[in-house]
């Protein structure tokens, strides 16, 4: 084994080890503490878990590539809400009224287009002004949320289309529609980051931006494409979720950015860019959802979830640092 391989393996594999621990813990603890008779690792329960992971998970894939690229996007929750409103509201527009269910694909496309456009706007601002992505998307998070409110005031936007609900609730090969979307997105993004020139260049930019620039890689367009992808995925997440629920409040999606970033960091993506794995992010998403479900399974208050996840995030950061520490002789700065 080459030097570094073991610790790399530990880090890559850590999230899966954590998931296994969660499964064991909640299965055993569930025997004693659970209010329900069902075992925690019941198949239906696990399938439901995958489905419930989808909204955060789909966005997390986008966040991973943005963070690998060396940026961050705090506006995903707001993009998610706007896309949801566009999706539900556009189906009620008179011009689509005559189309019946034919309006569905148009509504989907509209929502996805809006999400992509908002992501593109973020990317364009980061590219052209040189303002840090943290600030740009922090502003956009407020600004896009403002647009959400401006659309329909503080009222919820609702439209339930039963064809859509049926589609969203359908199961194919045992997996829910939302789960399929999550898996497809994961596969597609994995393929993008590992097999395409764009993906490899995105890694290079996050890893050593100056080297990438000197090698003639155009940083701006790559960043912009990644922001468009995360915008698209935030919209896709909304499309998948709201096709079923049919009603969106203007506050929906708030704090999503935090959940998403938590999942991505749990999966081991470096904040400084250049390193991160799509599969590990998938693990991070599952780990969070397991924790939520597991805690409620053993009868803990849902409130405790926030507490536990926050502390776990910090613990992971701490462990990561301990693994990377070089020893006593290290320079103390």
């Amino acid at each position: 084994m080459q030097p570094g391989t073991l610790s790399t393996f530990l880090k890559r594999g850590a999230i899966w080890g954590f998931i296994v621990l969660e499964l064991i813990f909640f299965s055993i603890a569930g025997e004693f503490m659970s209010l329900s008779d069902n075992a925690f690792m019941d198949l239906d329960n696990m399938l439901l878990l995958l489905k419930q992971s989808a909204p955060i998970g789909i966005i997390a894939m986008g966040m991973t590539i943005v963070m690998i690229n060396g940026n961050i996007d705090l506006s995903v929750g707001a993009i998610y809400a706007i896309s949801a409103i566009i999706l539900l509201d556009s189906m009620t527009w008179p011009i689509f009224g005559a189309l019946g269910d034919g309006a569905i694909p148009i509504a989907w496309l509209l929502a996805l287009a809006v999400g992509t456009a908002l992501g593109a706007l973020n990317g364009l601002i980061v590219w052209k002004t040189g303002v840090d992505a943290f600030i740009v998307t922090l502003g956009a998070m407020l600004g896009y949320r403002g647009l959400v409110f401006m659309y329909n005031g503080e009222q919820p936007t609702s439209h339930l289309n039963w064809t859509l609900v049926d589609f969203a609730e359908a199961q194919f090969l045992g997996l829910h529609t939302a789960t399929w979307f999550l898996l497809l997105v994961t596969a597609a993004i994995w393929f993008l980051m590992n097999k395409t020139v764009h993906g490899r260049n995105a890694y290079a930019i996050g890893d050593n931006r100056e080297a990438a620039v000197n090698a003639g890689i155009r940083v701006g367009p790559h960043m912009m494409i990644n922001f468009m992808i995360i915008g698209f995925l935030a919209a896709l997440s909304a499309v998948v979720f709201y096709s079923e629920s049919g009603s969106v409040n203007p506050n929906d999606g708030e704090l999503y950015e935090l959940w998403v970033i938590t999942a991505v960091v749990l999966g081991g993506t470096k904040l400084t860019g250049g390193a991160g794995s799509i599969i590990s992010t998938f693990g991070g998403v599952l780990a969070i959802q397991l924790l939520r479900k597991g805690l409620s399974h053993i009868g803990a208050d849902t409130e405790t979830v926030n507490l536990v996840i926050g502390l776990i995030l910090i613990a992971v950061l701490f462990l990561d640092r301990q693994l990377n520490i070089k020893g006593k002789e290290e320079l103390k700065v």
């Binding site: 935090l258 970033i261 938590t262 960091v265 904040l271 208050d301 409130e303 405790t304 979830v305 926030n306 507490l307 536990v308 996840i309 926050g310 502390l311 776990i312 995030l313 910090i314 950061l317």
Partner: peptide, 17 residues
């Protein structure tokens, strides 16, 4: 960033508890 992000969530949970 990550520590205070974690604490955002943790303190929220603490308050609710």
């Amino acid at each position: 960033l990550i520590v205070t992000l974690g604490m955002l969530s943790a303190i929220h949970g603490l308050t609710l508890t």
